[in-house]
Design a protein around this nucleic acid. Structure first.
Lengths: 332, 332
DNA sequence: CTGAAAGCGCTTACAG
DNA sequence: CTGAAAGCGCTTACAG
């Protein structure tokens, strides 16, 4: 059967204590003895049982991660960022998904209560924050990844939605686009409000304050982008640029504009937000504000590991910079 | 500190054995006693330690999953399929990626050797099959997910690449496209050879055998799609359809054709393979052969759980059907 | 430098 | 129906 520390001890003619010391590089072992033990370990192919070690030392060397769903294109980037750090530090990644809503959350909470992991990484769930907050208050080390500007009162990694909106505005102003339309996502999202605030502020400072009629509420889908362009065409309102608050709706905007017989970026410059794969495949390719998803995941993982090593979690959110990625939809 | 089974026993005035029996619904417990124990459990908020249980019963209720990288758009669908089944069955999902090549594999193997999980789900890695095979031979329950027609000699879930290629051909023939071009991926991939074989066979049966000049070797990128169209334009060869073996290169094909001034699907019908998100966002949207990634993940997970419950793993690969998804790139 | 023993938090024969 | 005891595979004071 499975070879245990006892087998190694037996074959090496020492106690389990000594084997354990060699295993953990305690150093208080005679060099020759250590060599002998190591030989036996290699020969037997012995590997300590993770759960037995975990039980004895009270840690799992595993981090739990909860994501709403892997369906969003950027979620896998976050997870990959987390995995890259965790794996480099020899931590396991226990992944949970929230696709069954409350039931998922309960199962997650149960797992956590069973001490299946040492700490938690959580991408802000649809409506599970109370649950999550309770876990945090119970004293579990935990870092949130806030991809939609919820601004939770917990240790958090986020990105600069406000600055992102502002840089979109500056880019359009640099191109002399003075009559922009903003296509938002649902206003409940903090990120939507922030992106709008940043964008509006720059135009205001440039002496071109945005009117309500320049702002259309969308829902982050391709369809809402097309629909907005339709609506605009019928209204006869003139505009020379669109800032869509995600790449998907921006793709819809581009399609809508072209279908109406106008050109991008000639007649209308279009800029999105996210920088997901779709941005490369629109025609023309989409200028966008890149959210550093991979880095957000990696940063959250690093903060958590630091916390597990005893460092305090930062009281203020860690905010990563967005960046302007210029492609053909604004610059011909 | 942490509340243990001993605390519960103490408060309930019974032995740990009895608490354990209540916990595991052994049923040989006096109803009244059970009630009392359950009350204490609730009051104390007791949850058994996963590692202690694992150590005692010799199982972890966790499945390990190794993926090459989460960067491919379909990989997260596979993972989600796995997660859906595992979560429904109260299993944990320990996720490993292979982004650091051999080092990743070694770490994965170490984790596995440490019995961190009961079984393995593996998406065929770039070049780690010997490693993986060794783990399997060591007796670890394991199911491969073969997304590129490698055809490993292990329990495997795959999809019908041959039938997929054939149905692409039938669709084009139904549309009277008699002069197709096939843009492949690299020929080393089993999936590429199978898709080609299925496609060629149908045209052959229709009395229209494919000539070598109708087959262009690509590399699954957008660029190779554009490049192929360029090359074709210069060669002056006539064609009325393109079967590109993945959606990305098909997107390049569409772009290339339109840039050359011809129309899709009017002049040239285009069909891809995969059905990733990009397929919805090309202009026109892409007709494609859908690979059931989510189902492949789910099926693999189900087979593995069945194996953990004692069922034998199927000797033959489990092959899931691809399906034709008709969009605007073939049917105006 | 080394080992016997207790402990981590459970489960499971075994005996009653 | 119930409990004392051994065991899962490690680590860690403690003593020498």
């Amino acid at each position: 059967m499975r070879v245990t520390i006892g087998d190694v001890a037996l074959h090496a003619g020492v106690s389990k204590t000594t084997v354990s010391r060699v295993l953990n590089d305690r150093g208080e072992v005679d060099a020759e003895t250590a060599r002998r033990v190591r030989d036996v370990i290699d020969r037997l192919g012995y590997v300590p049982s993770a759960r037995a070690v975990g039980l004895a030392i009270g840690r799992t060397s595993t981090v739990g991660m909860l994501v709403p769903s892997l369906g969003w294109p950027w979620m896998s980037q976050i997870v990959q960022g987390v995995a890259d750090i965790l794996e480099a530090r020899k931590y396991g990644l226990l992944l949970y998904t929230c696709t069954r809503g409350r039931e998922s959350l309960e199962q997650f909470a149960a797992s956590v209560a069973a001490h299946s992991c040492d700490g938690l990484l959580v991408v802000v769930p649809e409506d599970g924050m109370p649950y999550i907050t309770r876990l945090y208050e119970r004293g579990l080390p935990m870092v949130m990844i806030d991809d939609r500007g919820v601004g939770p009162a917990l240790p958090t990694v986020a990105c600069t939605n406000l600055a992102g909106g502002a840089s979109a505005a500056r880019h359009l102003l640099d191109l002399d686009r003075l009559r922009p339309i903003v296509l938002t996502g649902r206003r409940e999202f903090g990120c939507v409000r922030e992106r709008l605030a940043g964008f509006a502020q720059v135009y205001r400072s440039a002496g071109r304050p945005l009117g309500d009629e320049q702002i259309i509420e969308g829902d982050f889908t391709v369809d809402c982008g097309r629909a907005a362009m339709d609506q605009l065409a019928r209204s006869g309102r003139g505009f020379d640029a669109v800032f869509a608050m995600n790449d998907l709706s921006a793709a819809g905007v581009i399609a809508g504009i072209r279908e109406s017989g106008r050109t991008v970026p000639g007649d209308v410059a279009v800029i999105g937000f996210d920088d997901v794969e779709v941005a490369v495949h629109t025609d023309p390719p989409l200028t966008t504000i890149r959210q550093p998803m991979h880095e957000m995941g990696a940063t959250a993982a690093e903060l958590l590991l630091a916390a597990l090593a005893g460092a305090p979690l930062p009281a203020e959110p860690t905010v990563l910079p967005t960046s302007l990625v210029v492609r053909g939809s604004t610059v011909g």
